[in-house]
Design a protein around this nucleic acid. Structure first.
Lengths: 248, 248
DNA sequence: TTCTTAGAATTGTCGGACTGTCGGACTTGG
DNA sequence: CCAAGTCCGACAGTCCGACAATTCTAAGAA
């Protein structure tokens, strides 16, 4: 006679509050930019204590569905990609994602972004790419080099004008590219090879040459793995949380 | 003289609590499975009130970093992919991601999963794929058909044994495949074409034929777009939240 | 030893209270 | 009329204390 009833899912009041607010948001009754009622008002509406409302709100706040400027009222907002991908990144690290996995993902995502970037880019992004490449010339500070690398790939993915790809790519990039800091000291020629590749890719995008952009990006990513193996690093090495997330 | 000072960001106590706990978790001092101290103990440790601790905890809870069953103690846990991708999915919808964007992403992600799945799969997953295809035979209930479709692609991505790809793919699949419910009624042959494609893909994976799996998956996804256009649906149509998320 | 069970511990929720900050209205001086 | 100073109400952040329901724990019974 066990299992006669499903383990009845009694959710706490604060969970109901957040679930209900979430529902209002993605049903469109609350649009981005709208102001939420006061905590006190919400408490009255739901018939719970203000403390309870606050606990519920924290969840939405954490999801990026609502945000506050200063100590003002809460406003509904579109979750920034940063919030999402930092959580995804953390999840990947906790699952001990390996270099190999990240590389495999990057090998399909990055070239796709480059290819689409070549056809969809705005002038603005081409300019930013050019600037990025220019700033990278001759830089040998490791950390700075990595930052520019990450920025480069982020720019490429932005130029693709594809939200889905952008969001898919970000956690992968956030983890894979900082690994360059491990690789670079072991492989003298890594820096210059990277610079050349970036230059070619930026050029191809600027020229709207999709297949060339894709090819070079693929080479660029493939190169990363080759370097990794050449430096005798294991493909199955779990990748750590990057500085950018570990601190915050 | 502008920008002499950064806009000073004062973070509230509850934010510090969650940030600090997060730090403990990804520094490894708190491993998955560990029990967190009592709310009262945490309050004392941080020198804040229990209410404040609770608000901080809600954030981690929402991130999936800690979880609780019933009224028991909190335990550290690795975020399930479900939590992450449902948030990513919501974000995509709020940004009015279009069919085109999702399709473009799927066109690179799904074939990559199929290809890797062919080389990395376990017997277990091959069996599940076979079963899925078998169950799909002759089904014409729309909703059931979509569920099986989604499950099929999820299985393929699992067989790839790549966490990064899995996580990247999920939000895209969660949004794109339910759109089949819009397409199918307008296009009589859609169902059978889908069935055939799934059959071929599952076969290729079972045979460990990577290039064939990849090719068929690409055709399968390409077909989806062709059908979409044939049914006179706009590529730039924003995709809605799928049932699976809208309810919960 | 294993099983029960009373008591301690812990979570969820509540009501109330205080402070700091923000925005707006009002006042004052130029 | 405009700028600066002042006051006041609204509201978020924090704290305190309390209580019921549930879970944990350890003593006592079988």
């Amino acid at each position: 006679m066990t299992m006669l009833f499903d383990k009845l899912n009694v959710l706490s009041a604060y969970q109901i509050v957040s679930r209900e607010l979430r529902r209002l948001i993605d049903s469109g009754e609350l649009k981005a930019g709208d102001q939420l009622p006061t905590e006190a008002e919400l408490a009255q509406m739901f018939g719970v204590n203000r403390s309870t409302v606050r606990e519920g709100i924290r969840q939405l706040e954490n999801e990026g569905l609502v945000s506050r400027e200063g100590r003002k009222r809460l406003t509904v907002s579109v979750p920034g990609s940063g919030k999402i991908s930092s959580q995804a990144t953390r999840a990947l690290v906790m699952r001990q994602v390996t270099f190999r996995e990240l590389w495999e993902a990057a090998l399909v995502l990055e070239p796709a972004c480059a290819s689409l970037g070549a056809t969809n880019h705005d002038d603005e992004q081409v300019e930013a790419l050019r600037l990025n490449v220019e700033m990278s010339r001759g830089v040998d500070d490791l950390r700075r080099c990595t930052d520019l690398d990450m920025a480069f790939h982020a720019l490429v993915s932005e130029s693709a004008h594809n939200t889905a790809l952008l969001l898919s790519r970000e956690p992968v990039g956030l983890l894979l590219f900082p690994a360059f800091e491990i690789l670079s000291p072991l492989l003298p020629q890594a820096n210059s090879r990277q610079f050349v590749a970036h230059e070619r890719i930026a050029d191809a995008i600027a020229k709207s040459n999709a297949s060339e952009a894709e090819t070079w990006m693929r080479k660029h990513i493939a190169d990363f793995r080759r370097g990794w193996e050449m430096a005798n690093l294991s493909l199955d090495l779990p990748i750590d949380l990057p500085r950018s997330l570990a601190e915050n």
